[in-house]
Design a protein around this nucleic acid. Structure first.
Lengths: 221, 221
DNA sequence: AACGTAATTTAGACATGTCTAGAATCGAGC
DNA sequence: GCTCGATTCTAGACATGTCTAAATTACGTT
């Protein structure tokens, strides 16, 4: 519980650990260091404090896990971030490649009340502009594991539901291809040996490589 | 010029010095300390750094002045603060007593681009919800010195143009009296020896003391 | 089972911004 | 012109969050 106010750094570490351990269950020191662009030693130092505050459990040399409290803090930050992104696009005319950095700064300063007002003003969206689901004010979040565009077999159709959100250049490229959440796509061809995929979206076809295809998430059409 | 990014603390000090020296020409160490709720020694330490960065000039024991660069930074912060206040009221349904604290946190995180979008979205207001003028994106600000409600002579009428903005309780009280920018007021009576003033606004009359009257600014009706 | 590499942690340093305690300075009143 | 009280500055300490360099641990390979 606790309404303790944590520093921006503490929140950033918790969010990083949350996102890294979402798939693998736990996060490694240098993974966290890489994501936050700090030295591994800095992570060790911070982790000591996070453990003291009961936000993280740490088995030395074997990884980090969030406690219940740590996860709650992380989810509130994720909510603030995603609501801000959605609001900037829906209410202030931002494009989806411009919102990540702005939200990254605002998320530490915006009060929960402001976030709730913003969410209400744009109709309580369920996902952010990149298709990432928004936790509720009570910290509930369902984050389905989708297949990626690279998992489609030739001839298969699907709907784009989410894309990776951190790289503005990637987002501009995807927008130019109309590879955006809601779009229906068909896999026309798959070249063998990890070769390129031919994808149709609308009336256009594009050839993309597997690394890009792995960053685009799809669901049943 | 310089697009150097200053820390939130540095910006806060510059804003405090700006606001304190606006009237008196220069600001004292303990005035700044009181406004920022820090010890005078902390101000001395910070001032040393501000001088090194060319943001403040300091004649030891005799006060602080902003340099051109320091004033530019302060004015940008003032702009961010006042645009945020105006936006929260106009676009998100905040009341004028709720916006100061929220804006105080957001002002350090909001980019100039966001501020400009917010200002555009609500029609480029000239003043914030308390009547304080908003500096332009280029840092131009005209801050007239108004008379106060306490300066009115009996029988005189005027228009409220601005009120002090930092005390939420005061703002709620003023709102309950309809003492808000735009309202036309008449001074019906002034009791002698710093006595209370009888003020009419709309169809109602209120009796207020000189300390309160001094915090309400008026102009020709 | 021992080795070597990679990951992790510890040790010690630094920058920022804060504090308390005490020294220096100013200026008003005598 | 001197003294006293208030203001301001300096000195030294501490908390947070970061770094580099060096020590430690884990684990796959041999």
């Amino acid at each position: 519980m606790s309404t303790a106010a944590y520093t921006a750094s503490v929140e950033d570490y918790l969010k990083a650990i949350y996102e890294l351990s979402r798939d693998s269950g736990s996060a490694g020191t240098s993974e966290v260091a890489a994501r936050l662009a700090v030295a591994p030693a800095s992570v060790s130092a911070m982790v000591r404090r996070l453990v003291e505050h009961g936000l993280v459990s740490h088995e030395p040399y074997h990884g980090l896990r969030l406690t219940k409290e740590g996860r709650a803090v992380a989810l509130q930050l994720v909510r603030r971030h995603r609501v801000l992104e959605a609001y900037l696009v829906a209410a202030l005319g931002y494009t989806w490649d411009q919102v990540h950095d702005e939200a990254e700064r605002l998320e530490h300063a915006a009060s929960p009340a402001l976030i709730n007002r913003m969410a209400a003003a744009i109709g309580e969206p369920a996902v952010d502009p990149h298709g990432a689901p928004i936790p509720t004010a009570h910290g509930k979040l369902e984050e389905p594991k989708y297949r990626t565009l690279g998992d489609l077999t030739a001839g298969e159709s699907a709907q784009i539901v989410r894309v990776e959100d951190k790289d503005p250049e990637l987002l501009r490229y995807l927008a130019s291809l109309r590879f955006m959440p809601g779009a229906t796509v068909s896999c026309l061809r798959r070249e063998p040996y990890e070769g390129p995929l031919t994808i149709r979206v609308g009336s256009k076809t594009h050839v993309i490589g597997p690394p890009l295809a792995a960053r685009i998430f799809v669901d049943e059409a």
